[in-house]
Structure formats: structure tokens, C-alpha cells
């Protein structure tokens, strides 16, 4: 466990903040770190950036722990274990990145790295409403073509990211599609890519404890999200019976969705 000082807190939108930590680590987009608030809890977060001795963690306010992270100010410290897991693998030249809701957290980082490597990137980003979008400007500044989708039509096109992706794939041939977001959205993305024969990578989420493949808590079909993932190949995901249908709570009890 390393303690890292918060250098800056950025408000991405009313529900989402990014903590920029003074932390030298080597990580690729899609990898995650366990973030510890001493005396409270520790939870996994995708890294949303990792450059020049700084690591970024982007946090949506969903419960007591994330609320505590949202209250933190520059100069305070959090504990970090990681980076853990396997990130996104760069494939091909023309790619699309599909993000939904808080799932865009690792994708801002991914778009940055893909653009640095000279790839042509379409970033399809969706949220319920305009105020819940984030990393849109970041992706534009990185040089991605951004397609904004909102459920209520308050920004960009009204509708789902998956429809925008299907349209995109109808127009041009892509080498790889990267996705992170609600599981049902990712399931659709994996399905669309499977039909079109386009390679796909998705970042999955399950309740985590150890973070490095010992406790088994984050299992999905015998794979461990923390160690075998969190990024999995679409073909592998398509075979997972539990993907989109079953997850385990902190007790390990199965919950169907």
C-alpha cells in the first residue's frame, strides 16, 4: 500500500470528480488500482490517466465511499494498491471507443493513448442526460471524432451509443472496438461486433476484494476480473454465461440481473 497525495481535484460534472494523484506508476488504459481511505474502506477504480508521475482516478458519487472521495481536497492522501489487471490492447489503425455513463472513466485515458499512437479514433459516448457526460472535451482535444448520445436528447443525438456504433460500422470498416459502461450496453456492443466480425475489447466489473487473483470474489465464469481482466476479448466474453446475467455480492451470493 502506497499513500499518494492528491494534487488536484477536477469536477467533471456534478456526479463525477477526478482526483489527480502524485504517484509514479506504469499503467496502461484499462488497468485499475485499489483506492484506500484509511479507517473506511478500499475499492477498485479504473485509472483515468497515468502520465509524468501522476495517476488519475475518476470517481462517480454512488455511495458513502465515493462520497468521501468527493469531499477530499488537494493535499490530502489516499492509499493506492496497483496497478492491477490487464488493460486494453492496441489493435489496428481505425478504431472506435464506446463509453456509457461512468464507464467512460478509463476511456478518456484510452483515447489519449490511442491518439498518441496515431490511431484514427471515433469516441461514441453516452449518458442519460447532458449533465452526466464527461471526457467529451478531453477526447476532442486528443483529436478523436466524438459522437455524443443522450437518452433525453439534451446533447448530441437522442438515443443509444449502440445504435450510433452500428451506424458507424455500417459506414466504414473498423479494426477494433473498445468499450466500457453498463453491462447491458457492453453486451450489445459485443454482439454487434460479433455479427460484423470486428474485434472487440470490453472492461468488465465485479465485486472485488483482494485485487490480485487470490480471493476469487470477482469471478465471472471461472475467470477472475481482477487478474484475467478487467479487459477481456469480445470472443471470450460472448462465451461467458454470467456476462449480462449474474454477479455476486459481498457475501458471494449470486444475483441475477
Amino acid at each position: 500500500m502506497r499513500m499518494a497525495k492528491i494534487l488536484e481535484v477536477r469536477e467533471e460534472n456534478p456526479r463525477i470528480k477526478t482526483l489527480i494523484l502524485e504517484l509514479g506508476m506504469k499503467a496502461v488504459p484499462g488497468q485499475f488500482a485499489m483506492v484506500w481511505v484509511p479507517g473506511m474502506n478500499e475499492k477498485p477504480f479504473s485509472l483515468s490517466g497515468c502520465v509524468e508521475g501522476k495517476a488519475w482516478v475518476t470517481v462517480a458519487k454512488v455511495g458513502a465511499f465515493s462520497e468521501r472521495l468527493h469531499q477530499m481536497k488537494a493535499g490530502e492522501q489516499v492509499g493506492i494498491r496497483g496497478p492491477f489487471g490487464n488493460g486494453f490492447k492496441m489493435k489496428g489503425e481505425k478504431v472506435a471507443v464506446v463509453g456509457g455513463g461512468c464507464g467512460s472513466a478509463p476511456l478518456g485515458f484510452l483515447v489519449d493513448e490511442l491518439r498518441k499512437a496515431g490511431k484514427k479514433v471515433d469516441f461514441v459516448v453516452g449518458a442519460k442526460t447532458k449533465g452526466e457526460l464527461f471526457f467529451v472535451e478531453r477526447a476532442r482535444n486528443a483529436g478523436a471524432e466524438v459522437v455524443v448520445c443522450t437518452d433525453d436528447g439534451s446533447d448530441g443525438r437522442k438515443g443509444f451509443t449502440t445504435d450510433a456504433l452500428a451506424e458507424l460500422l455500417g459506414k466504414e470498416k473498423l479494426d477494433c472496438v473498445y468499450t466500457c459502461g453498463p453491462e447491458m450496453m457492453m453486451k450489445k456492443v459485443v454482439g454487434i461486433c460479433g455479427e460484423k466480425g470486428v474485434e472487440c475489447q470490453a472492461s468488465l466489473e465485479r465485486f472485488m476484494k483482494c485485487g490480485f487473483g487470490v480471493c476469487g470474489q470477482c469471478a465471472i465464469d471461472g475467470m477472475l476480473v481482477c487478474r484475467d481482466g478487467p479487459v477481456f476479448d469480445g470472443k471470450k466474453i460472448a462465451k461467458m454465461k454470467e456476462f449480462g446475467s449474474l454477479r455476486r455480492d459481498a457475501c458471494g451470493k449470486e444475483m441475477r440481473s
Partner: peptide, 30 residues
């Protein structure tokens, strides 16, 4: 059913692990 202890529950150190998962389990029926 038991949710066990909050995290951190398992840590690596120089010569092994130290853990207090706290017997999280779904109970005997499940």
C-alpha cells in the same frame, strides 16, 4: 450469509500474504 470484513482484506507483503476476509459466504442454503 456474511459479507465479511470491509476492504482492504488481503495484502501482499515481502514474504507472503496477510488476510482478513472475514469468512464472507452466501450462507448454507446458497
Amino acid at each position: 450469509p456474511r459479507s465479511g470484513h470491509p476492504n482492504p482484506t488481503v495484502l501482499e507483503w515481502e514474504c507472503g500474504l496477510v488476510n482478513a476476509v472475514g469468512l464472507s459466504n452466501p450462507g448454507m442454503e446458497e
